[in-house]
Structure formats: structure tokens, C-alpha cells
Amino acid sequence: MSVQHLHIAAGEHKHLVIAHVSDETAQWRITQEKDSVLTIHLFCLEKDDDTTCNALLDIEQVGEYAETYIYGLGVLTGKQQINVRTHVRHSVPNGKSSQLLKFAVKDNARAEFVGELIVAPNAQHTDARQTNRNVLLSPTATMHTQPQLEIYADDVKCSHGATTGQIDESALFYMQQRGIAPDEARRLLLTAFFHDVLTTLGEQEVEERIQRRIAEKLQ
């Protein structure tokens, strides 16, 4: 297991795409200097139904006015397992971080998300958000979500939310009543579910490729 180290210099903008994490651990340790912007896209769309994926993102803002954005999505099927752990540490004031992670879990697959967010005592005016939304597509699928916020500064804006639900049955029936087969209806609903994560890519061609990949996974 190797750790990839990355240091983002003052004012630098960095975009990382982490995909195809399979049977190994993708571990990153990243530090951010003043005014730097880090955007991470994490995709877990492995075709093989028997893989275990681990992604560990350890990020520290060491310079003020740094921004960290983490967007992730995953579709887990068969016996797949995934563990995503984000550790975002605001060590200095005026930092911003935003995390949006969504998982759809089917069959006997299992997904785990641990989101650690630490705001150091002197990191005033931190603006940190963490959202994790999940949908279970089979009664045997499991999702564990664990937001962990440690906030030691008092003048900060921090929010987190985690929900795990199922496909909206009333929407499914509405679509069926219009002649749409349940599989197709589910595909449309999941495309909608992932829509806000996908649009953060800002590239329609890549978005469409990932949408096709999602559809393939769910067939």
C-alpha cells in the first residue's frame, strides 16, 4: 500500500480524478497552501462484481483561504465492497471545504463512508460542508455512513448531512403508468440521483461517458 503525497503551492489550482480504485488502496496525503484550490472527483464504477476498493483522502489546509472540493459517486453491485474515508483538516482560518458523495448499493454489496472533518482551534471563519446521500437498491445491500465532525473553533460555518434511502416507489409507479419499464425507470431515477455530482465535472462528454458506465453497472 503506497501513499501518494501531494503539496499544492500557494495560489495553485489542482484537479484530481480518482477512478478505477480496485483491489488496492488509493491513499493520498495532500497539503494545501494559501489560496490554493483542490478539486477531487472520485468514481467507483468497477465492472468486476467481486472487488474491494479503499480510498483514503487525507487533506490538510495549512495556508489561509484554501478551498477543497470533494465530489464522489459509486455504484456497487454483486459482492463489491468500498471504503471511502475523507479526512479534511482546517488548520488555519478562512478555509473552505465542500464534500458531496453519493453511493448506490445493490445486491450483496457494501459501502462505507467515513467523513472526518476537523476544524482546529485557531481556524476561525472556516466554511465546511459535508453531504453524503445513498440509495439501497436491494434489501441485502448495506451502507454505513459515519460523519465525524470535530470543531474546536467557535466562529465557523459547518454543516453535514447523511441520508440513506430507497428508490422512490411513487415515482417508479408514476413512470410505469406512462409505459416505462421498471428497469428503465430506475435508470432514469439514478441518473437524476447522481446528476448534481456529475455536473460538477463541467464536461458534458465525460458526464455522458460516466452515465453510460452507471447504466452498464445496473444492467
Binding site: 422512490d168 415515482a171 408514476y174 413512470m175 406512462r178 416505462i180 432514469l188 431515477l189 441518473t191 446528476h195
Partner: peptide
């Protein structure tokens, strides 16, 4: 009528 956020009327009607 059910609201389906993220599914466009166009895609919905075309599928139907």
C-alpha cells in the same frame, strides 16, 4: 402528480 427531480420532462416523455 409525482415530482421527479433531475428527470427532465423531455427524457421522461421520450422514454414513455
Amino acid at each position: 402528480p409525482v415530482e421527479i427531480p433531475g428527470v427532465s420532462m423531455t427524457n421522461f416523455m421520450r422514454a414513455a
